[in-house]
Write a protein that binds this DNA or RNA. Sequence first.
RNA 1: UGGCCCCUCGUCCAACGGCAGGACGCCGGACUUUGGAUCCGGAAAUCUUGGUUCGAAUCCAAGGGGGCCAACCA
Length: 570
Amino acid sequence: MAPKSDFIRAIVAEDVRTGKFGRPVRTRFPPEPNGFLHIGHAKSIVLNFGVAQEFGGLCNLRFDDTNPTTEDIRYVEAIQRDVKWLGYDWEDRLYFASDYFERLYQYAVQLIEAGKAYVDSQSEEEIRRNRGTVNTPGVESPYRNRSVEENLDLFRRMRAGEFPDGAHVLRAKIDMAHPNMLMRDPILYRIRHATHYRTGDTWCIYPMYDFAHCLSDAIEGITHSLCTLEFKDNRELYDWILREVGIERPPQQIEFARLNLDYTVLSKRRLIRLVEEGHVSGWDDPRMPTIAGLRRRGVTPEAIRRFCEMIGVARADSRVDIAKLEHCIREDLNPKVPRVMCVLRPLKLVIVNYPEDRTEELEAPYYPRDIGKEGSRPVPFSRELFIERDDFMEDPPKGYFRLAPGREVRLRYAYLVRCVDVVKDPSTGEILEVHCTYDPASRGGEAPDGRKVKGTIHWVSAKHAIPCEVRLYDRLFLKANPDDVAEGEDFTAALNPESLVVLKDSVVEPSVKDDPPGTRYQFERQGYFISDPVDSRPGSPVFNRTVTLRDTWAKIQERLALESSTGKAS
RNA sequence: UGGCCCCUCGUCCAACGGCAGGACGCCGGACUUUGGAUCCGGAAAUCUUGGUUCGAAUCCAAGGGGGCCAACCA
């Protein structure tokens, strides 16, 4: 594959060439521990660790834990597990912004001493009002010109816990009329009498993102601080703070477009709502775009990494086609996972000329020839089998080449069978059984007379079948952009009511019996599945559908349906 | 007193003043004991208008469209 090239790598390459920083490339992945990582974070992880590695540098993992009221150790643990699972190693470079609180405090004092920061005692409401709007300048706080001594004294007492929440804040003294709203005397510290999951009650003042992030980068010797586009305006403040405290060769912030994926949401705020409002079963619900959800769905880290590389990095807002992710998943799984037969919606097939008491074992390879991998298992065959309901049609449309009255198909790895009868429920007309005769000379699936049989279907021997539950997952939302809903509605209005279909009566071949939970398969002609690591029980497995196989027949059917509905039927 | 960013096949990304290319998707064909995989082929794009230039997707300007910013969130 060609070496990766994008505008960020171009900048880094140039900086390395000119020796701009006088130190090796250093990046960081800086999550806030207030939610689970999702595939958008994966893009950032792949970028940050990838860039560092390609340019002979290192990437830190740093938790941006400056808001004790929303953050939790539980998320810190989940995030580390997910980054590791994705295949990245921060070695001994695990950092926390909270480890820098004392140094950050000293930097704040330095700013006050330089007359660049002051303690404001306006109420939250006043501060907001006096900030102005995008069209009108703000007005300066009456406390803006307090003396350095008074500011120092107040700030020290803020730290000492002498004031209640909201009584004072520390603000940078910049310009209340600045066209960039972030530069209108941004708040640097607020009082929060809250227990921090790491620092406990040591602090009751906490730095804001803009103050903590740039300085954390500087402390760690970061060279390139990669973040998403919505932080573009923050860069001016990032540079201002670093300049005012006198950081030499400061890190450089570079923004790139965050990932948007069709038919899903990728903002922590919305994902939290899905979890808390019970639209999904949890952060690891296989429909979630979280790393934990994708993992439980059966997606591999390799597929996610490949996807992140394939979508590239740019500055333009974009929304990636979900088919691209699905392609990466299939591409990775195809050569890796064994084929096995599972009937999702069983229909009984009786081979009327097959002896009632007979069972034979047929050898079935785990991989098709083109994969080039060894391995097979015996599959029991007997008079009564289950086949897929979809694989029989009493009155098939043109182009259908599976089983139908009088038609012959191949049972995968077994025999050619011909449908001779259909048994129906007399009252409902529901098809109960399909009766066939088999050709004993076609063992293995090949007719000695060389006659061609177009259709091949999968099957499971009824008396050897393992009952199982199969969960079919589909897109969580009906709209490519779930935020594109009517006035007064939010993204939950676009939820897909059929994003999960649970099949309780599925049957799988016995060879999978002793496989541990978390085993991946391709169920022939259906898709890729993984035995659910949480809900599978010995003897009664639960399978999650990771992704379907490409389905040409489904496409043909869609077209037929469309043609008949628009009156173009021939 | 508003500021900033972004517009290239349906989608994502290249081309960095010199033949608009790749990937996914789509269409067609070959092959096939998975309507899978694989292979071959095809359709498919520079938002508009000016300007600079021998030459513009690329530089400049205006217009159009999209996005971000007015949390004591990150």
